[in-house]
Simulated scan of single mutants.
Amino acid sequence: MTRRTLAAALTTLALICSGAVQAQGFLDLVKHALPHEKQQYRSGTISEEQALSLYSAKQKQPTFDACTDQFPGGKPFNIASVSAKMQPLALCSDNFAVVYSMTSRTPLMVAERLNAAQLRDAKGEQRTNNFYPDPRIPKAGRAELSDFSRQIPQVDRGHQSPASDQPSERAMAQSFALSNMVGQSPENNRGAWSKIESDVRKFVQRAGGDVFVFTGPLFDKGFETIGPNKVWKPTRLYKLVYDASSNRAWAYVLDNKPVNVEKPMDYATFVQTTGLRLLDQLTVTGTAGRG
């Protein structure tokens, strides 16, 4: 606190002691006398027992049976199509599904179904910021909190299904599992990537129905690893958006570094750029501009 703000607070205290200011007026004056600081999120964790309690018995099984609704047409991603070398797992949460790799110790793809009603509910949810290793994954194949700490250069634990998309307390808590995180450049995560997430939400709020979003990392030759468990750090990240009402799709592919948001690409360009054919079973009639 500066001398000026301290003096303002003391002056306010003197006023209330003299009876010149009523209680509510005192609170208002203190609010304006003290410096305004940007909200800071505290980072914590929860116990393994608490983490396990976040998931239903069905969600603890390594299948997509509990989250088919997160995929277009209710048809889950075929986990068998992922190379066995990546040791893939299917993981369900209340509002997103994860194709996880025990080799990279990261998600490979996170799918979520969004709509305007869900995002209205999400606006009222308080961000928990309690990160935790996913207890459903064997320890030999999962990331730990220590993998993301004291990294030089610094890395963020970057959500693939954003916290701001979560419409309930439990869904919010589930979104902080490390199975939903990749090591992301802080400038990217808090800059261009944050803008893309916001643009997608703006589009969903205007859309006529469900919008399906696929998000994940890309590991190009020469990628780095972080932490004691050598968690793979992506060289690029992607976000593919499919509007089920119009059959339109568009995507963003960003380098994992400080970048600007460019015009989104169409689905064909996305496939050519990433090699991922996530919508081949669907009719894609066109693209759309930025949300």
Rank of each mutant, 00 (worst) to 15 (best):
159 H>K: 08
125 E>W: 07
160 Q>V: 00
205 Q>E: 15
175 S>E: 08
165 D>T: 05
209 G>Q: 12
119 L>I: 10
191 G>Y: 03
206 R>D: 08
171 A>P: 00
161 S>E: 09
209 G>K: 14
135 P>L: 14
147 D>C: 01
200 V>P: 06
164 S>F: 08
204 V>A: 07
142 R>H: 09
152 I>H: 04
125 E>V: 13
156 D>C: 02
206 R>C: 06
144 E>H: 08
198 S>H: 12
132 Y>L: 07
201 R>V: 06
162 P>G: 10
177 A>W: 12
154 Q>T: 06
145 L>Y: 05
156 D>V: 00
163 A>Q: 04
157 R>K: 11
155 V>E: 06
122 A>K: 06
134 D>H: 12
162 P>S: 14
148 F>K: 00
169 E>S: 14
134 D>N: 12
155 V>G: 03
183 G>A: 14
118 Q>V: 12
120 R>K: 13
191 G>P: 01
142 R>M: 05
146 S>N: 12
139 K>L: 13
169 E>P: 08
152 I>C: 04
181 M>Q: 09
204 V>W: 05
165 D>Y: 11
208 G>V: 02
193 W>F: 04
128 T>C: 14
188 N>K: 07
141 G>L: 10
164 S>E: 13
171 A>L: 11
155 V>T: 03
118 Q>F: 12
191 G>Q: 03
211 V>A: 06
155 V>M: 09
164 S>L: 05
189 N>D: 06
176 F>G: 01
133 P>C: 11
147 D>R: 00
150 R>V: 02
189 N>K: 02
176 F>W: 11
147 D>N: 03
157 R>M: 13
159 H>Y: 02
165 D>R: 02
193 W>G: 00
175 S>N: 05
137 I>V: 14
164 S>D: 13
188 N>T: 04
193 W>L: 02
176 F>P: 02
191 G>D: 01
179 S>K: 10
178 L>K: 01
146 S>Y: 10
174 Q>R: 06
186 P>R: 00
137 I>N: 13
161 S>I: 08
210 D>K: 03
195 K>A: 14
143 A>S: 05
200 V>N: 07
195 K>V: 13
201 R>A: 10
173 A>C: 10
140 A>E: 14
207 A>F: 04
128 T>V: 15
201 R>F: 04
182 V>F: 00
124 G>Q: 14
162 P>W: 13
174 Q>I: 11
210 D>R: 05
201 R>G: 04
200 V>E: 05
180 N>V: 03
165 D>C: 11
